[in-house]
Design a binder for these strands. Structure first.
Lengths: 342, 342
DNA sequence: TTGAAAGCGCTAACAT
DNA sequence: ATGTTAGCGCTTTCAA
């Protein structure tokens, strides 16, 4: 009892019979210490179970080697992909990646930002659902680099990596038109969400360009997961004329649609071609593999981390915006059996 | 230019015309400060964009109010559920939840543990895939409480919250037997993974108890996601006698199986009843909703956080083990249309 | 090669 | 109610 918890540098130094400065050296500049001493110190560290206090380390000027990632939804595979790739890139630079989920809550997002800021992380990756507003400015004022992910925000204060969501919508609509579908529907979300808005714009523009060849009906949903799809399917079925080509703004939504439509005897893709976007890893596991617009989350995460790393290290860094192009993954839900899958 | 970055308490104090101690007080014990002064200080804080340095805060003895969660796979919905519930509970106590994904890599898991230890977080939730070994002991020696999630480790040094995986296996096997299935198959994973082992034991015990009524074939897979299921389906189809009841150790695996089996003309559930476990949110979105053993990740996460919080605050804390009972969610993949779904 | 000492930004006594 | 000051554990000159 009473044995000092949390051994400090001083404890290690005492045990190894050296000064505290020497211990610090074997931690940070081992080459400046004689091999024998180094060994002795390392033994003391092991025996004491010493773990360097990162707070003191950081306070005293040691580099932070931590980056924070703030995502709106840890259940969304796009952000999972982003996180995975970001972590891989971060580890290559010997830095840790911490993930904070803001659960689509702006206040929580701000809390997380503030937290990372107060922890003085070396950089932040932020994937906001809405305008991150002043919170992100606060962070920047502290000199902590922030890279915006998946959100187009026009100012030149930070780098950003975005998906061309408009193009995603265009790809989807064009695909259905090429399959001969004419009565299109766009299912998804509220206007408040930029990616939803952009994808819908893309769809609209293609339909508009068809000069009356195709029609478009838009069905908003409360959420972007399977439940929303189930409700939207009911709305579709209530239409006087069932669409023959449906674009869901997320794969989960498409899954919910699929399930309900099939239960009501609608043949997919014969009666109705259905597609999602995001290329959710789980979406292609169903019995009708889902056509989707791939968003390349891994590319997003990797690019963002690269930008952040550059900003963290290069003194003369110029803010840039990287666009990741979506691509089409054609599967059974639009193309039928024997699809030209990737 | 050269205006001092990262305003400190001293800067705020100077700007507000008070002492540094006063500023600290408005941060930590606002009631001890006259309203007018408080206001002045808060204005200075806002104008300067001051964000308290958590490192210094923690160093000087301020509570950490952070808990770290280490999970093996951020793509697994069980851990996503755990993380969500843990975050909710943590927020109720005004503490932040940081997630680190160890990507099924023991070395990375240790790194994350070490990181949280060095950051002197107030507690750690650890969901290990294998024996966390000495790394977790290191953390404990620092006096940081650790709660083990989803892993039964017999020692009395920490609390743990576990799923009764054996029971999960039993539930699954019993369900299939009750449906009249006799030729069972268990698909999934290597022996190295405790949850897999336990679930299989549960299945075996039920089959054994049937006294020859039922048979069981076991099919290992390389991974626990859809790909593994696709391969396993091939193995199933190659069997002299196709099983009529298949238990996949994860839902993703079951999804892969389903897709491939259906493509080969096997009717689910008529020819073959198929079920998974974990109750992956996305699994029930397919056109054949998947029967699954629900693992109640949210309950796990909530219980673990509660235990951790207790250990963090109560001086006289007794380590406990909480068991969360799995339950059956019967859906179409075993019961056919009009299932008795929850 | 090693030791001594001055902070880093903050909290919490203790004074006033 | 507010100011002063001694650390917290570490890094980093600077001296020895």
């Amino acid at each position: 009892m009473g044995r000092p918890r949390r051994p400090s540098l001083a404890d290690v130094a005492a045990r190894a019979g050296v000064s505290i400065g020497t211990v610090s050296h074997v931690l940070n500049h081992p080459e400046r210490v004689r091999a024998a001493t180094r060994l002795r110190v390392r033994e003391a560290i092991a025996e004491l179970g010493f773990v360097r206090n990162a707070n003191a380390h950081s306070l005293a000027g040691g580099g932070a080697r931590t980056i924070g990632l703030v995502i709106p939804d840890i259940g969304n595979s796009l952000f999972v992909d982003i996180a995975r790739a970001a972590q891989e890139r971060a580890l290559e630079n010997r830095t840790s990646l911490l993930v904070a989920d803001s659960n689509n809550d702006d206040a929580l997002q701000d809390r997380h930002l503030e937290f990372f800021a107060s922890a003085r992380v070396s950089g932040i990756l932020l994937a906001p659902m809405r305008d991150p507003g002043i919170a992100v400015r606060r962070v920047r004022r502290l000199g902590i680099p922030v890279v915006l992910l998946n959100y187009a925000w026009d100012d030149d204060e930070h780098c950003s990596v975005v998906i061309d969501n408009r193009r995603a919508g265009e790809l989807a609509a064009r695909h259905l038109l090429e399959l001969g579908r004419r009565r299109l529907a766009f299912v998804g979300g509220h206007d408040e969400l930029q990616p939803v808005r952009d994808r819908r714009e893309g769809v609209r523009s293609v339909v508009a360009a068809s000069r009356g060849l195709a029609t478009l009906v838009e069905i908003p949903t409360e959420d972007l997961v399977a439940t929303g799809g189930v409700h939207a399917a009911a709305a579709l079925l209530g239409l006087p004329d069932l669409p023959d080509g449906v674009i869901a703004v997320t794969d989960l939504l498409a899954m919910g649609l699929l399930q309900t439509l099939v239960q009501h005897g609608v043949a997919v893709p014969d009666d109705l071609a259905l597609m999602g976007s995001d290329d959710n890893a789980s979406a292609w596991g169903g019995s009708v593999p889902m056509t989707s617009v791939q968003m390349h989350g891994r590319a997003l995460g990797a690019a963002a981390t690269a930008l952040l790393t550059e900003e963290m290290t290069d003194a003369d860094h110029e803010h840039r915006r990287v666009e990741v192009a979506p691509t089409l993954a054609v599967r059974e839900s639009t193309a039928g059996r024997a699809p030209a899958d990737a």
